[in-house]
Design a binder for these strands. Structure first.
Length: 152
DNA sequence: GCCAACGTTGGC
DNA sequence: GCCAACGTTGGC
C-alpha cells in the first residue's frame, strides 16, 4: 500500500468539501507526471494526505483513501469548464482521475514546519520550485508528518 | 530537436 | 499582487 499527497486550493475544493461529499473524484489534474502516477501507481486503499495550497494556512490538513482507480476525467471534454482540453481525443482520453474518500481532518502541519524538518527534506513538496500536484510519500515521511500533528 | 516566449503554479 | 520556477508551445 502506498501513500500520496494531493494538493488542492481550498477556495476551489477543501478538506471540508471532501468531508461533506464523503467521496469525490479528483478531477482537473493536467500534468503528465501527476497523471502517470494516477494511471499507473495509485491503487484502491492507498492513503492520501490532503494539502491546502495558495491560501492562508498552507500545509497538510487531513487524510483520505483511494476508493477508485484511474478512469477518464470527463471534465476534459467540457468546453464550458475550466478543465477543458480541446486536444484530448474522446476515443483515447488524455487525462484521468481517481476517487477518494474522506477519512479525517488533521491538525495543520504547515509547509513552513515541513521545510524545517530534515526528515522531510526529500519530499518534492519542500524542494524549491516544485509544482507537482500529486506526489508520493514514503512510509517514513507519512509517519513523521502524523507525528508532527501532535495527535498521535 | 532546439530553445525562446509564454502561461501557470504557488509561496510569500 | 509579485515574481521565481517550471512546463508547454511553436517557429525554425
Amino acid at each position: 500500500m502506498a501513500n500520496w499527497l494531493f494538493k488542492t486550493e481550498p477556495d476551489t475544493f477543501s478538506i471540508d468539501t471532501l468531508k461533506q461529499q464523503k467521496v469525490s473524484c479528483w478531477e482537473g489534474v493536467r500534468n503528465y507526471q501527476a497523471r502517470n502516477m494516477m494511471r499507473d501507481e495509485i491503487k484502491v486503499g492507498d492513503q492520501v494526505f490532503i494539502y491546502h495550497s495558495s491560501c492562508k494556512d498552507v500545509g497538510v490538513v487531513g487524510i483520505a483513501t483511494v476508493v477508485r482507480e484511474a478512469y477518464p476525467d470527463h471534465f476534459q471534454f467540457d468546453p464550458e469548464g475550466p478543465y477543458y482540453d480541446p486536444k484530448s481525443d474522446p476515443d483515447n482520453p488524455r487525462w484521468v482521475m481517481v476517487d477518494i474518500e474522506y477519512r479525517r481532518h488533521l491538525r495543520l502541519v504547515s509547509l513552513k514546519r515541513m521545510k524545517a524538518n530534515p526528515l522531510l527534506a526529500e519530499m518534492p513538496l519542500v524542494k524549491r520550485g516544485n509544482r507537482l500536484s500529486i506526489m508520493p510519500v514514503t512510509d517514513a515521511q507519512w509517519q513523521e508528518i502524523l507525528q508532527m500533528t501532535g495527535q498521535f
